[in-house]
Design a protein around this nucleic acid. Structure first.
Lengths: 212, 212
DNA sequence: CCCGAAAGAGAGTGAGCACTCACTAGAAAG
DNA sequence: CTTTCTAGTGAGTGCTCACTCTCTTTCGGG
């Protein structure tokens, strides 16, 4: 009957894990801490012992989110290099796969939108972008234009996830998701984001451009 | 002393105008209707006569937002054609200018993030994207890839606005905003979004590709 | 000049919010 | 066994929220 006892740090991780789903759905400001506590299986009071304020929880949340993304990129790049392949496309594919974890993408988008009002969240998001851009630049040696296009496509993919454009079988939606116009060939056209590995193309081309 | 009397329709517009700034800052779910009523200079009660529920207001808000963007694009394209120029770059420039109206951009971003939970908002955003993509396609005749890149860059610009990356004078930030690396040439480097008309380049090139 | 319709407001109401206080349970060191 | 430290909670507190009931003011038409 009693909840399994955990260390404070373990419990904090569990809370963040539980909060991800809720905040992804409703946004940070609109998600009640009571709901987060319930989802994490602890009392409301204890939540505030582990995170003294709601804002603290929010910062921990986006920090976790950013860490996951960064780690996936690093891992994808390292694995590609180990296989003797180029890291650029591998990171593109990694992001394509990341798109299927809606919670991470949506929390990220909420964090972007919340940045003007929450300076600490904005700072965290800036750091995340800096680390990611520098990671991509240093591992691929791609030119700024190519990196810009890479991230731009990533952001458009985020929006495609939020609006679930992959479920819309119309030309304009295909244009935005980057799915090649195979209109009538395949009736079951609900294409998954990972299959449209377009995100990688820019770096695949550009990575070769300035190998330094 | 008494508020000027308006027709219901005028008042609705005034409310939307007033709500834009607040919702842009705090997000829709986190913005109290009381604050909106106060900003609009009317009683809280009357707000709910004009918009029966908060969700109704939200839909009206994003609809207005989308209408403004669409109208700017149409106007820019028409003006360019009238001048004998290509409409693609003109629409790119128009979006660059739009970026300076932070409220519109931020409300749009909040709407994207809110889409999974608010089906009516999602529907409105999908419509907006459809209209915009088809407008760009029909006026420029650009290929899907180019249109995709155009919108992708636009979405990245949105995020640059939200995180205010234009105020960050570091290489990674320049890479994302699309500002050419003029690192040490100009010390006053706070470049405005409109000046980086990169958004247009894709369509400028692509518009010529399939003139049809 | 009157009357009906529409604009607009004062004063609530119950529900839900972030956050707190005083407390208990269990491990583990002395 | 006792002390002590940390995990964990039930029951609030004061405040804010979306929404409502009822009422007054102003305008245009006959």
């Amino acid at each position: 009957m009693s909840t399994t006892r955990m260390s404070a740090e373990e419990r904090r991780s569990a809370i963040i894990e539980a909060a991800m789903g809720l905040v992804a759905q409703r946004g940070f400001d609109a998600t009640p801490t009571l709901a987060i506590a319930k989802a994490a299986g602890i009392s409301h009071a204890y939540l505030f012992r582990l995170f003294p304020s709601k804002e603290d929880l929010g910062v921990a949340l986006v920090t976790h989110c950013n860490a996951v993304i960064h780690q996936r990129f690093v891992h994808a790049a390292e694995a590609a290099v180990a296989r003797g392949e180029e890291p650029g496309p591998a990171m593109g594919t990694a992001y394509g796969e990341l798109l299927q974890e809606r919670d991470i993408i949506l929390v990220q988008m909420h964090a972007h939108a919340a940045s003007p009002t929450h300076p600490e969240i904005r700072a965290a998001m800036r750091e995340a972008f800096r680390d990611l851009v520098e990671l991509v630049r240093d591992t691929t040696g791609a030119a700024p234009d190519a990196i810009n296009a890479f991230f731009a496509k990533g952001m458009l993919m985020n929006i495609s996830v939020a609006l679930d454009l992959f479920a819309v079988d119309e030309p304009w939606a295909h244009t935005l998701t980057g799915i090649s116009g195979a209109d009538d060939t395949d009736p079951a056209c609900a294409v998954s984001p990972a299959s449209s590995g377009l995100v990688a193309d820019d770096l695949a081309v550009a990575g070769a451009r300035s190998p330094d």
